[in-house]
Design a protein around this nucleic acid. Structure first.
Ligand code: FES
Ligand code: FES
Lengths: 151, 151
DNA sequence: CCAATAAAGGACTAAATTATCTTTTTTTGT
DNA sequence: ACAAAAAAAGATAATTTAGTCCTTTATTGG
C-alpha cells in the first residue's frame, strides 16, 4: 500500500514528534539507527520532507532535524501525499480507474468503505495527536521497541 | 497493496468465470484485449495460475483458458496468495513486523480492523459467488466496460 | 500425416523503486 | 579565522517488478 519511503517518513516524523523540539534536534544518523532504516536513504527522504515543510532542520554542529509547531499540526495524510502522491490511495483495488461508487469494480464494496475510513482517520488526526496516543498507549515505532518488549 | 500481476490475475479469473466454461475456452490474446492487459505478461501469468490450479487450459486450436468446477470454488484470497504471497497483506502498515494487536504500531488501530475485514471477505467468497454478484450488480471488469457506460 | 493454432517454457529488456556514495554548503565552538 | 559537524545536493548503483520475445510442445481439423 505505502512505499518504503512513505513508511520511513511516517515513522521518522512520529519519532521526531516524540524525541525532538526546537532546541533538541536529532541527527539523521541517530534517527536511522533508532528506527533501523538505511541511513543515506533516510537522509534524502528527510531533505524532501523538509522541502514540503513536514520537518524542520538546521545545519552544523548541534544541528539536526526536529518538528516545529506547524510541522506538528500536519497529518499522516500530508506525509503520504508528499511522499507517494494520492493516486495509489484513490485508485481502484483492481487498478481499473479512480475508485468510485458510481462505477464500482467487483470488489469495490469489499474494500472501498475501509479505504475511505482509513483516509478520513489519517486526514483528521494531527501528528501531535498521534504522538499523544503513542505516549498514552505505548505503541511501537521501531523493531528495537518491539524487541525490547520481548526481552 | 496488490501488484499489477495480482490485479490482472483477479480480473482475468473473474472474466473467465463470466465468459468461459469447459467447452467455451478463451485465448490469452482475447483476454488481454478485453481486459486491456499486456498480452505476453498475461500469458506468463496465466501459466502460473494454471500451475496453481486456479485456472484450466488446453492447447491447440479451440484451446484456451477456462474455469472448471474446482477453479470456481477458489477465492480471491487464493489468487492473492498465489501471486503476491501473504506477507504484504499480513504485514504492519508501517512495515515494522507482522501486524498484531499485541504489539501495535501507532496506526495499527486505524488500519487493522479494515485489513481483517477485507481479508475475511476475500477468504469467504468464492469466485463463483463473485461472478454471480457481477451479473446481478453489473460491476465493471475492464476500462472498456467503464467507457461503455459513459458513451 | 500435416499444417495451423494455442499454451508452456525460458531468456531477455525496461522501468521504477530503493539504496549508496561523493561533494558542497552552512553553522558552531574554539 | 578555523576545524569539525551536520544537512543539502547531485550522481550513481542495486534490486525488484513489469513487460517482451523467441522457441518448444501439444492438439485439432483436414
Ligand atoms: S472501483 Fe475498484 S475498488 Fe473501488
Ligand atoms: S502493527 Fe502496524 S498496522 Fe498492525
Amino acid at each position: 500500500m505505502l512505499s518504503n519511503a512513505a513508511q520511513y517518513a511516517i515513522r521518522s516524523i512520529l519519532y521526531l514528534a516524540l524525541y525532538s523540539n526546537a532546541t533538541q534536534r536529532v541527527r539523521a544518523k541517530k534517527i536511522s539507527q533508532d528506527l533501523e532504516v538505511p541511513q543515506p536513504f533516510l537522509a534524502k527522504l528527510l531533505q524532501r520532507l523538509g522541502g514540503a515543510d513536514l520537518v524542520s532542520s538546521s545545519k552544523g554542529p548541534t544541528g539536526g532535524f526536529y518538528l516545529n509547531k506547524a510541522n506538528r499540526n500536519k497529518t499522516v495524510w500530508d506525509i503520504i501525499v508528499t511522499v507517494d502522491g494520492t493516486e495509489k490511495f484513490n485508485q481502484c483495488f483492481l487498478g481499473l480507474h479512480t475508485c468510485s461508487d458510481t462505477n464500482p469494480c467487483p470488489v469495490h464494496f469489499s474494500v472501498s468503505p475501509f479505504k475511505q475510513a482509513i483516509k478520513k482517520d489519517f486526514k483528521g488526526k494531527t501528528i501531535a495527536q498521534f504522538a499523544e496516543e503513542i505516549k498514552k498507549r505505548g505503541t511501537v515505532l521501531s523493531l528495537k521497541d518491539f524487541d525490547a518488549l520481548h526481552e
